[in-house]
């Protein structure tokens, strides 16, 4: 059954792609800034999955050295993603502080209301989208 093999071999990657695209869509299309940040979080989490998935070995165990085990999953992606998580929460805290300040200054956290008339032609949706997504 080759089709099933392909699905098992790539299911994690496909979920990663779905989460990434959903996060991207929320960040770009939604005007509410808190929702944008939640979308950014989903996007980041998909990157964690992208990194951790290839490190897994079937039959392996967590990379803590013990004489009873011989096969360990790859520890390097874990280290990288630990850093990424912590930097991610720093980004989130800064973004939320900005949202609070924007709300104080403009009385709104909706992009459409802040940018003026909602029926303007210019599409401001992607304005703040690329800031923290990497």
């Amino acid at each position: 059954m080759p089709a099933l093999d392909v699905v098992i071999a790539h299911f994690n990657h496909w979920i990663t792609v779905v989460l990434m695209v959903a996060g991207l869509y929320v960040v770009v299309a939604r005007g509410n800034m808190v929702k944008k940040l939640v979308g950014l979080g989903v996007f980041q989490t998909s990157v964690y999955l992208l990194y951790i998935s290839p490190g897994k070995i079937f039959g392996g165990t967590a990379p803590i050295i013990d004489p009873r085990f011989t096969v360990y999953s790859n520890p390097l992606p874990h280290v990288l993603i630990l850093t990424a998580i912590v930097v991610g929460v720093a980004t989130l805290a800064l973004g939320l502080a900005l949202v609070v300040r924007i709300n104080e200054a403009y009385g709104s956290i909706e992009e459409d209301e802040i940018f003026g008339k909602p029926d303007e032609d210019g599409d401001g949706g992607g304005e703040s989208s690329g800031v923290g997504s990497r």
């Binding site: 392996g60 874990h78 939320l96």
Partner: peptide, 30 residues
Amino acid sequence: LDAVDVAMTEASVGAGISTVLMLGTLYLTK
């Protein structure tokens, strides 16, 4: 996926601190 350290960090930071920060922001906004 055998990434136990990352899982602990994600559970405490991603589900804990992030949610608290978000709720604090919601309290201050809408």
